[in-house]
């Protein structure tokens, strides 16, 4: 994926959060998958920060 494709390819969307947005996209004929989201790390901010760091480190 790159900047050049952002506007030239039709959107295919993964929706995380408000389900109304997935339903609107679905109704408009846009390919969409809605994630059944829960707060990561059970909503524990310290655990979340740790997870974030781990994912960032993986990347490096």
């Amino acid at each position: 994926m790159s900047l050049e494709t952002a506007l030239s390819k039709p959107p295919r969307v993964i929706n995380i959060g408000l389900d109304v947005f997935a339903l609107e996209l679905q109704a408009a004929g846009v390919p969409v998958i809605h994630v059944d989201w829960r707060p990561p790390a059970a909503g524990d901010p310290r655990l979340l920060a740790l997870l974030e760091r781990l994912e960032g480190d993986d990347e490096e």
């Binding site: 994926m1 494709t5 952002a6 390819k9 959107p11 295919r12 969307v13 993964i14 929706n15 995380i16 959060g17 408000l18 947005f21 997935a22 339903l23 996209l25 679905q26 390919p31 969409v32 998958i33 809605h34 994630v35 059944d36 989201w37 829960r38």
Partner: peptide, 24 residues
């Protein structure tokens, strides 16, 4: 929407050519 995966990665498995994630 039929399938309701629990994570971004499993969503990507269902929609491999996804190019955008809408987050709210």
């Amino acid at each position: 929407v039929r399938v309701l995966p629990r994570t971004l990665d499993s969503a990507l498995a269902h929609l491999p050519n996804a190019n955008l994630v809408a987050i709210s």
